[in-house]
Amino acid sequence: MRIGIMGAGGIGTVVGGLLSNAGHDITLIDQWPENVDKIKADGLIVEHRDTEVLTHPKAIHLHKLQLETEPFDAAFIAVKSYDTEWATTMMLRYVDPDHGVFVDFQNGINDQRMADIAGVERSLACIITISAACYEPGRGVRTDVNSPGFKIAEHDGSDTARARELVEVMNAVEATEFSDDLWGERWSKLMVNCMNNALSGVSGYGTAKVRTEADTRRIGIQLGAEVARVAKAHGKELHSVLGLSPEMVIDAAEGRNVEEVEAALLETARKAGPGGVPSFGQDVRKGRRTEIDFLNGYVSDMGREKGVPTPFNDKIVEIIHDLGIEFKGDKKHVQPLIDMLP
């Protein structure tokens, strides 16, 4: 399969490298010059725990996309949420107009924004459950052991040949499933992101520490419960996440079965390993703009639509907006959220 991956960050490099290694025709398109140049010169190393594989996908700078004359069978949109529109627009003329597809490979719920540009009739989604990072040029790192690693879905939930083909393609990276419920899957993943990502950014903690430290673990439960309540108000049927049903997270936020939920979160911290940092935390460490308005901010907005209170999500959005860009993660930034805990 000939695939153009727009965005060679953590997910883009891990997916692109392993698909290339499996024999697919992969082109990574990225705006980080040193990353592209390193891959072109020396190949792309994909690291997972104690193993490394040297892969050789094609890598090009954004301004070199104009030189691509053979259309892609698929465009994977793997950029930050705030870059969705321009990245999709840029790929339009380079994807096969008759049979080519666009696949949303992002955190947050950006599928409709991508489909508004590419056309819903050729838009699919990939819900990502692995964790990955790109800390240095030419090296993608997978930081978890989750399986299945991906779920492929059509917007309307239909079971199509093209969705099944993508499942087979992505099996080369990690076990992949077909899902007939894109929106339930997206909201379930959003729940995980909202419980962990922004907390990692403001505190400076990695994925595991957010869940092992008592204060941030308890805040995460409150954040997740608010996501679940908002999703239910909008008629979304959430799936179990982190080994927990959404009802269990809501119960824990309200003081019921807290020990069981905390034990499950501690187990996910153990599996995450010490080196994992969610994408939001990576952005803060790199002094980059964050996706707060597309994660916790999205929940706050959707909660207001249905009159569902989201005080913890509102507060973490406020904290990050006040800190701006290029702040350093520090436990002191979390104190206002600690003060809100019941």
Rank of each mutant, 00 (worst) to 15 (best):
E121C: 02
E121I: 01
R122D: 12
T84V: 08
G108D: 06
G149K: 06
N110H: 00
I152H: 06
P97I: 08
W183C: 01
R122V: 08
A161F: 06
V173W: 03
V120H: 11
R164E: 11
D111E: 10
S131F: 13
D156W: 06
V95K: 09
A87M: 04
F178V: 01
R139K: 14
E177P: 00
S123G: 10
D159H: 15
R164P: 04
G157H: 09
G140Q: 04
N171P: 01
E168A: 14
S81C: 15
R142H: 09
M195Y: 02
M91W: 07
D98G: 15
D144T: 13
F105E: 03
S200M: 09
R93E: 15
A115W: 00
A175S: 06
I117T: 06
M170I: 11
S200A: 15
R139L: 14
P148W: 09
R164W: 12
Y82E: 04
M170Y: 15
V167W: 06
L124R: 07
Y135G: 02
A118N: 08
I77R: 02
P148S: 05
E168I: 00
E174S: 12
L124G: 05
V79Q: 00
G119C: 01
S200P: 02
Q112K: 11
N193K: 12
A78W: 00
D96T: 08
G201W: 01
P148C: 04
G184K: 03
V145S: 14
S131V: 10
A163G: 15
Y82A: 11
C126A: 15
G119E: 12
G157S: 08
D104Q: 12
M114C: 05
G108I: 01
E154Q: 14
E168W: 00
I109Y: 02
L92D: 03
S147M: 13
D159R: 10
G184C: 11
C194A: 13
G201P: 05
V145G: 07
A172I: 06
R113L: 12
C126D: 06
T143A: 11
G184S: 08
T129R: 07
R162L: 04
L92V: 11
A87H: 04
T176A: 07
R162H: 07
Y82W: 09
E174K: 11
N196R: 02
I109H: 00
T89R: 10
M91Y: 04
L92E: 11
T176C: 10
D104I: 03
L92A: 08
R142K: 13
V192A: 05
K189F: 14
A118C: 10
